[in-house]
Amino acid sequence: MNDDVVVLRYGHRPGRDDRMTTHVGLTARALGADRVILPDNAGQSAETIRDITDRFGGPFAVELRDDQRALTRDWAGTVVHLTMYGERVQDVEAEIRADSVDDGTPLLVVVGGEKVPFDFYDEADYNVGVTNQPHSEVAGLAVFLDRLFEGEELDREWANAEQVVVPQETGKRVVDPEAADAERVGDGDEDRETET
Results as ranks from 00 to 15, higher is better:
N2P: 01
D3L: 14
V5H: 04
P14D: 04
P14T: 10
D18N: 01
R19I: 03
T22C: 02
T22Y: 04
V24T: 07
L26K: 10
R29F: 08
A30D: 07
L31K: 15
A33L: 15
R35Q: 13
L38Y: 15
N41C: 03
Q44G: 15
S45F: 08
S45L: 10
A46G: 03
E47F: 02
I49V: 14
R50M: 02
D51Y: 01
I52C: 08
F56L: 13
F56K: 06
A61N: 10
V62G: 02
V62Y: 11
R65S: 12
Q68C: 13
A70T: 10
L71K: 06
T72D: 00
G77T: 00
G77L: 11
V80K: 06
V80S: 05
H81G: 04
Y85P: 00
R88D: 13
R88K: 08
V89Q: 00
Q90M: 12
Q90D: 14
D91V: 03
V92T: 06
E93T: 09
D99I: 00
L107C: 15
G113L: 03
D119G: 08
D122P: 00
D125R: 01
Y126W: 12
Y126E: 12
N127K: 05
G140I: 07
G140F: 13
A142F: 00
D146T: 11
R147T: 11
L148G: 04
E157T: 12
W158P: 01
N160I: 02
A161Q: 08
A161D: 06
Q163T: 09
V164M: 12
V165Q: 10
E169V: 11
K172P: 12
K172G: 07
V175W: 03
V175P: 13
E178P: 05
D181Y: 03
V185S: 05
G188M: 05
D189Y: 15
D191K: 09
E195R: 14
E195H: 12
T196F: 14
